[in-house]
């Protein structure tokens, strides 16, 4: 019984939530440092692509995972350059990076594989079995510990909450923001990598399919705090799973519940949670501000 619950509900929920949790933790660090990060979707996509490419050519998922992380980091540093150095509007720049990221995989896969936006299938021996799950748990624990119990966490929070105070203590606000952006790139890149080399066996076009934006919603739902953010991701993952499980189930009468009603569930639950179970949320005070 317990084993069935684990393999039918808990494990699948964790699997579905893994890319969301990586990306959401990244988004949380970035936004806590005071920089809006709507580019998670694009970072995930690029991470997924490079992870698939490198895993395919080395036949080793760890190299792929590293490549996804580095690709995410590079893209996020580009974003940092535009918003921190060049002071571009963060929403506009983030949108631009998302658009840019959508175009990168088709362009490169055309050169490498003569294919518009998908990579060759990776044999199952070269895919992850469960390592990303443990890695995800480790990132959650590390994020929570560093956020609440370290100087680094405190300073990142100040960069987003009260940059002037941080500055008067002689610490560079920009420095903390660079670090926040870099963290978001690496973590969302990892999240993307888990899509292509853990949950699937190749990269296919636009395979992030909105997960970056769901992760962003989880950050807001989780009040920009590590554990609540992760819980929000798990909630989204669980509703997705519920949606899968409830399709075609007969609740009453003879006909199954129409699929449209079940498809509404994730949105419905989100609205209900946002409206009733949450209370007030407050974004980091200096979020999106230009210094």
């Amino acid at each position: 019984m317990l084993e069935a619950v684990f393999s039918n509900w808990i494990l699948p929920t964790l699997r579905v939530s893994t890319p969301l949790i990586f990306a959401a933790l990244g988004g949380m660090w970035c936004e806590r440092s005071g920089v809006v990060q709507i580019g998670l979707e694009g970072i995930m996509l690029v991470g997924a692509f490079f992870a698939a490419v490198v895993t395919h050519s080395t036949q080793n998922p760890w190299w792929g995972l590293g490549a996804g992380m580095v690709a995410g980091l590079v893209l996020s540093l580009g974003y940092g350059l535009t918003v921190l150095k060049l002071k571009a509007n963060q929403i506009v720049a983030g949108t631009a990076f998302n658009l840019f990221a959508m175009g990168v995989p088709p362009f490169l896969s055309m050169i490498w594989y003569d294919s518009t936006g998908s990579t060759p299938v990776i044999p199952s021996e070269a895919l992850f079995r469960s390592a990303p799950l443990f890695l995800m748990v480790a990132s959650v624990v590390l994020s929570a510990v560093f956020y609440h119990r370290s100087k680094f966490g405190l300073r990142v929070r100040f960069a987003g909450e009260h940059p002037k105070a941080l500055e008067s203590a002689g610490i560079s606000v920009q420095g903390k923001r660079w670090q926040g952006i870099a963290l978001s790139g690496m973590l969302a890149g990892l999240g993307g990598a888990t899509l292509s080399i853990y949950l699937a066996s190749s990269f296919s076009r636009n395979m992030s399919s909105g997960r970056g934006f769901i992760a962003l919603a989880a950050v807001i739902l989780g009040k920009w705090l590590p554990i609540p953010t992760v819980v929000a991701c798990l909630l989204f993952g669980f509703t997705e799973l519920l949606q899968i499980r409830l399709q075609g189930v007969v609740l009453w009468g003879e006909r199954p519940v129409p699929v449209q009603w079940i498809q509404i569930l994730p949105y419905l639950i989100t609205i209900v949670v946002l409206a009733f179970a949450m209370g007030r949320t407050r974004a980091p005070k200096a979020l999106g501000g230009v210094e």
């Binding site: 699937a200 076009r205 636009n206 395979m207 498809q263």
Partner: peptide
């Protein structure tokens, strides 16, 4: 019920 349905292998696998 949206176009994303054609591009979501992880969900299809689940």
């Amino acid at each position: 019920v949206t176009g994303e349905a054609w591009n979501n292998p992880p969900k299809a696998k689940e």
